[in-house]
């Protein structure tokens, strides 16, 4: 039986959601690993867009930063940052975006700005928004990938950097966001999806060896569990080999 790390199972499960030919907006870190793992395995025609401007990037190594030379040199085209955000994202041309966050709440709102109740006196100053609010608003769908830490899974985020699915039913329709928002949350413990009735995140799958109690222990609200809770298929040795090969090049 293969063994895997927290990052490995998140990357493998995230990559499985990507279908060949999709356009994918790629952030740095795990999202970039996920997208390139999919491109190197079952989705060779995945169209990767990085916010610095490379369209159709095909990096051999994973970039450290969002604008590394390898992204531009392997891209079909390199456009300006206003074009990325105004035409490609806001214009509605991207199928899926991957995001991470320091905090997520029960309706999938994401915080990457400050920890603590007072913006002006933060307990922790985080990097900020970057491209995340537009990814969350405009991609047809969003997958969130983050470690399932208790301090991160909170009833309500301290600061809404990127809009999720609630609590109000018109959270997305009122501002006229065309994208469906965060419809998958992948952690190192399992997978959460919004309840179709009220958009509250619900545990729909646990990874092999994880108990529901483990997930509850690391979630600060009483997390709902789907009536038919699934167990994620374990990463195959092929998936793990492709992922480790990609990481070893980088």
């Amino acid at each position: 039986m293969p063994v895997w790390t927290a990052d490995e199972i998140m990357s493998v499960v995230g990559a499985r959601l990507l279908r060949d030919g999709m356009s994918c907006f790629v952030g740095i870190g795990i999202p970039s690993t996920v997208a390139n793992l999919a491109r190197n395995t079952h989705a060779p025609n995945l169209f990767l867009i990085y916010e610095a401007g490379p369209l159709g990037a095909k990096p051999y190594r994973l970039p450290l930063s969002i604008g590394d030379g390898e992204l531009a040199e392997t891209a079909d085209s390199v456009v300006s940052v206003p074009e990325v955000f105004n035409y490609w994202l806001q214009g509605g041309h991207i199928d899926v975006g991957y995001l991470s966050a320091a905090q997520i709440d029960r309706f999938g709102n994401l915080n990457t700005t400050v920890i603590g109740p007072d913006y002006n006196q933060p307990k922790v100053r985080l990097p900020g928004a970057g491209g995340a609010p537009e990814i969350a608003a405009h991609c047809r769908e969003v997958t969130v990938i983050m470690r399932h830490a208790k301090r991160a899974f909170v009833p309500q985020v301290d600061f809404v950097t990127s809009v999720g699915l609630g609590p109000a039913p018109d959270t997305r329709s009122r501002p006229g966001f065309r994208g469906a928002g965060p419809i998958n949350v992948i952690t190192d413990l399992g997978v959460l999806k919004p309840d179709p009735h009220d958009s509250e995140l619900t545990l729909v799958a646990v990874h092999p060896g994880v108990e529901v109690q483990d997930v509850w222990d690391r979630t600060q609200w009483p997390l709902r569990v789907a009536t038919r809770l699934e167990v994620t298929d374990a990463p195959t040795s092929e998936e793990l080999a492709a992922l480790r090969d990609l990481k070893s090049r980088s």
């Binding site: 940052v81 609010p133 537009e134 809009v163 501002p175 006229g176």
Partner: peptide, 26 residues
């Protein structure tokens, strides 16, 4: 946000007092 600061420059470059975008809402 990236889009917000970008568009502040876009408005400045265009000689406009402001520009509009579909961000920040919510």
């Amino acid at each position: 946000s990236h889009a917000g600061l970008t568009n502040r420059y876009v408005a400045g470059a265009s000689g406009m007092p402001f520009t509009v975008m579909k961000g920040y809402l919510g």
